[in-house]
Amino acid sequence: MPAIEILGLEKTYSVGFWRKRPKRALYPLQLTVEEGEVFGFLGPNGAGKTTTLKLLMGLVFPTAGSARILGQEWTDPAVKAQIGFLPEQPYFYDYLTAHELLNYYGQLSGMPAKDRNRRVEEVFHQVGLHDVRGIQLRKFSKGMLQRVGIAQAILHDPKIVFFDEPMSGLDPMGRREVRDLMEELKQKGKTVFFSTHILSDAETLCDRVAIIHKGLLRSVGAVEELTSSVQGKVEVIWQGTEIPASIKVLGVECHLSGEHVRAIIAENQQDVFIDVLRRERQRLVSITPVRTSLESYFVEKLRHAETTAGSAV
């Protein structure tokens, strides 16, 4: 049984105060996340990630479509006991102490008192807030609130956690800790579905990722699968102060900087290119393979989407 099945959820907001205009935030989305997966939901700002998560949490209502979580209708309150949610830039009742907040949330999740007390202590240790648990949340920094957010999401030991931008607002140490925590959840067999616009966060962590842009799903797959579909590139640098005409006709983009010329070319163009350079008696400085990261895949994919946007949207 898949953990999450998104069956054509879509959302059109209406914006404007007097004259309402429709604003498409999410085109019909079809996506399945298996149990035990760490799934990255990637996209630049405004792509529709938060909208998708809010739809799944029942915070906003879809224009059409539905979803199933752990095999049940997603609006079923029984499902809610099995999921945890960290909103984007979370904010909490600031008149409560962190401890009171978690206790309250444990009550709302229907945790019995004994479990609750134990788990509250446990998660405070886990997110590194044990020392400040008695302080009112109004005195918490953004990064601390983020940790409280993570704590409340995992408090009731849910089967699936949904994190919206879990690393935002955290320092490098904090990001590292969140990454470890997600690993830990995976070890325990939990499903983690998280959104991010920072690709390096996803690269090391995710079993699979989905890429969304302007409300449209662009691709889904394992990180290696996606990046290997992008052709390998090499960077070639040679000495020179101008670009020979025979290179220009190859249509390769070259950059002059001081005594050097730099070009990024496709791997399979490499031999031809070097031959041309040799014939032109240019002095080669270096040839370096460019590692295709998720980042470059992303940039390429989105640039592609940009040029075809007219027809796709």
Binding site: M57, K80, F85, Y91, L108, G110, G149, F162
Partner: peptide, 14 residues
């Protein structure tokens, strides 16, 4: 407004 509701309504609260 303050979005404190998000973490309440994502629990089994109708």
């Amino acid at each position: 407004e303050k979005r404190t509701l998000y973490t309440v309504l994502s629990r089994p609260v109708r």
